[in-house]
């Protein structure tokens, strides 16, 4: 456990992690300020725009890091996944602020639960995307494939009339199917990482 935390701490100190964390938090702070209403304008609708922005940004982040983690050693991949989860959790106070002032009908627990679960789910989707892209020798196109995947998931859900995979509509309404899908994906990824971690530990011991 302590080794895991140490690896996570080291991963967070990597320049790419800090840059992404800074970028995500800055983008969310700017979004919050942009959608916040002026006093006297009546209703406060800031949470709706903010939650969608947060959801899409974190989905892109998780898909991107998941795709890159697919090519990393299991321990580093585990640390990368945890780093994405930490960034997602650290963005929650901004969402709580928007939620508190907006008073939406969607319950707060949905945001609190869906943020880490969705991050885990999109990480696994990203890992799958990364492996697939490398398998078909299109790894260089991952920076394009990640946003295209988010757009594709949105189009797929809209066409089918569901909220199962896309982060945009899932941010605003409670969707049990979305939660189930992301939980299953997240658990599958967690099991795979745990297995890979142990295997890596055994290899290290034998070496």
């Amino acid at each position: 456990m302590s080794e895991l935390l140490e690896r996570l701490e080291q991963r967070l100190r990597d320049s790419d992690a800090m840059q992404v964390a800074t970028l995500v938090l800055a983008a969310l702070v700017v979004t919050l300020a942009a959608v916040w209403p002026t006093p006297g304008s009546g209703s406060n609708e800031s949470w709706y725009a903010f939650a969608q922005m947060r959801s899409v940004v974190l989905a892109l982040l998780a898909l991107g890091f998941g795709a890159s983690a697919a090519a990393e050693p299991p321990r580093r991949a585990f640390a990368t996944a945890l780093m994405v989860m930490v960034v997602a959790v650290l963005a929650l106070p901004l969402e709580v602020a928007a939620y508190a002032a907006s008073y939406p009908a969607t319950p707060l627990w949905w945001s609190l639960v869906s943020v880490p679960v969705a991050a885990a789910g999109y990480l696994v989707l990203g890992a799958g995307l990364g492996r697939l892209a490398r398998f078909v020798r299109m790894g260089a196109f991952l920076p394009l494939l990640v946003p295209a995947t988010v757009a594709g998931l949105l189009v797929l859900d809209v066409q089918l009339g569901w909220t199962i995979l896309n982060p945009l509509t899932a941010a605003l309404v409670v969707s049990p199917w979305y939660l189930l899908t992301m939980t299953v994906l997240g658990l599958a990824g967690l099991l795979w990482l745990a297995f890979a971690w142990r295997r890596g530990h055994g290899k290290e011991a034998r070496a």
């Binding site: 800090m18 964390a21 800074t22 938090l25 800055a26 969310l28 702070v29 919050l32 300020a33 916040w36 209403p37 002026t38 006093p39 006297g40 304008s41 406060n44 650290l90 106070p93 901004l94 602020a97 002032a101």
Partner: peptide, 19 residues
Amino acid sequence: TTPVVPVLLGASAYALIVL
């Protein structure tokens, strides 16, 4: 509604401290 300036300052301060 709370004015935007305190919200912006609070959110920025939080993000900065966390980073």
